[in-house]
Structures are given as C-alpha cells and as structure tokens.
C-alpha cells in the first residue's frame, strides 16, 4: 500500500481540461516536487487533494483510504496540511494565534468550557497553555520569535510565508502540501526556506509534496519530480533525469532553439 497515491486524476471546468490523467505515488518521508509552466494545473491538483475542488475522474488515496470528495476539514483531520501560493493568513490575529489555529483539531475546548475560562486551572486555561507551549516550539524552530505578538497583516512577505508554514506544521501533519513556498522571496529568505523544508523532512519525518518555480530549490531538495504541462503529465524522475528530458526542455524553453538564440 502506497503512502499517498493519486490515480488517473482529471478535472474539467466546463469544457476546459485543467487536469488530465495525473497519476503519481508518494513514499513516506520523501520530498516530491511538482513543476510545470504557469497554468499547468499544479495548484488545481492541490485543491483537488484538499477537497476544495471535486475531481471529475480518478481517485486520491491516503494510506489506502480514498479522500476524493471529502471536505477540506475532513482531509485536514486525516493529517494533510497545506500552505497557499497567495498568502491566506488570518490578518487580524497575531502570529501566535495564527499558528494556534493549526492546533484547532487537537484542542478539545468547546463553547462552554471556553466561555468559562476561569483562571489557569480551568480546563480551557490548561489546554490553552499546553498548546501555546507546543506552538512556541514551532516558533523557535522557524525563528519567528520577533513577530510572535504582532498582527500578521503588517509583517513582511517572507515572514508571512514562514507563518503559513508554521501554521501547517502546528497541525502535526503526515503529509504537507507546499504551494510555492519560495515565491517572491529574496535570496536569503529562499535559502532559509530550503533549509526549513529539508528540516521538516529530516527532523519531523513529514512527507512533503512541493510546488515550486524556483529550480534551485526544486533540484536541491526533491527526491523525485513530476513535470506537468497543460494538465497532462510529461515525465517523472529524479532531478537529474528530469533536467535532461527533452519534453521538459521544450515545455520550459520553447520548441525552436533558433528563435531563442536569435
């Protein structure tokens, strides 16, 4: 049984074929990258896995169980977390509270126990403190101490991306979907992000499914790569195999080399 498997996945929006027969398998603990030109369907694929879109054909299996058609919160409950290409943070909460939301599924305080937060020793008080301690570990891990109590809306772009990663990690996922974690970052931030994603794999043992345009990052850290274009898979393989593949060069650099040279 594969850890995570996408089988012949297709999705149509009206007449538009966004994904057409995508299949791949993830082994536990690896970093698997999906690359492709803009509009190739990478984020659509993530949205299908997450349950935001409902695929037209095919199946998605996580640890042998189909997650196709499940609602996003049920998918999260199974241990799949993600970050977004266009930052989707809770702008009016501070960093701590944003990451605390990642603990949502692991907390038990309901309406009543929450409403009667009378002191440190109450159930809600104890639980809040315990989870804040856990979040503090993640804040330490990702070096976010300086923005701990600031509203995330006003933080720099790179930091916001980091907080998204932190929030996803707070879920303690088994599978982490990263949608362009390095987009729009400067060289230094990019290096840090590469380092952290590698750490997530090594230290936390999380399997990572990565979408990225930054080839340096992709080639550095991925164990295997899937290339898609116009919703169709082109090739799959290790970074060095993919780099040499003629179809990949065609998709990225165009067909007629003469035009480029001129």
């Amino acid at each position: 049984m594969a850890f995570f498997e996408v089988k012949n996945l297709s999705i149509y929006f009206g007449g538009l074929v966004a994904l057409d027969g995508i299949s791949f398998t993830l082994n536990q603990g690896e970093i698997y990258a999906i690359i492709g030109p803009n509009g190739a369907g990478k984020t659509t694929l993530f949205n299908c896995i997450n349950g935001i879109y409902h695929p037209s054909h095919g199946d998605i299996l996580f640890k042998g169980q189909s997650i196709r058609g499940k609602k996003p919160d049920k998918v999260a409950r199974m241990g799949i977390a993600r970050t977004f290409q266009n930052i989707e943070l809770f702008n009016n909460m501070n960093t701590m509270e944003n990451i605390m939301l990642g603990r949502h599924l692991r907390m038990k305080t309901g309406l009543f126990r929450g409403a009667f937060l009378w002191g440190k020793r109450s159930f809600a008080g104890l639980e809040e403190v315990a989870h804040r301690r856990k979040v503090e570990e993640i804040i330490d891990f990702l070096d976010l101490q300086s923005s701990r109590n600031k509203l995330v809306g006003g933080l720099p772009y790179g930091t916001q991306k980091q907080i998204e990663l932190a929030r996803a990690l707070a879920l303690e996922p088994e599978l982490l979907l990263l949608d362009e974690p390095c987009a729009g970052m400067n060289a230094e931030e990019k290096q840090d992000m590469i380092f952290w994603v590698k750490d997530v794999q090594d230290e936390l043992g999380v399997t990572v499914l990565l979408i990225e345009h930054d080839m340096q990052m992709v080639m550095d850290i991925s164990d295997r790569i899937l290339v898609i274009n116009f919703g169709r898979p082109i090739t799959e393989g290790t970074p060095s195999e993919v780099q040499r593949h003629p179809e990949v060069l065609k998709a990225y650099l165009g067909e007629n080399e003469g035009v480029c040279a001129a």
Binding site: N50, I52, K71, P72, D73, V75, A76, R77, A81, R82, F84, E88, L89, F90, N91, N92, M93, E97, M100, L101, G102, H104, L105, M107, K108, T109, G110, L111, R113, G114, A115, F116, L117, A124, E128, R167, A168, L171
Partner: peptide, 27 residues
C-alpha cells in the same frame, strides 16, 4: 472568553480567510 479560546479563533479564521480555515480543519 469564547473569543480567546478555540471556538473564537475558529470564528475569526472564518472571517479572515475562509479557505485557509477550512484546510486547517475548521468545519
């Protein structure tokens, strides 16, 4: 107190970024 604990955070997350809230497990 509700706004400071789990339920309140879930409310705020729905207001600020519904899709992200959903993918973090907020029903």
């Amino acid at each position: 107190n509700i706004t400071k604990t789990k339920v309140g955070r879930a409310f705020i997350s729905i207001r600020d970024a519904e899709i992200a809230a959903e993918t973090m497990g907020v029903n």
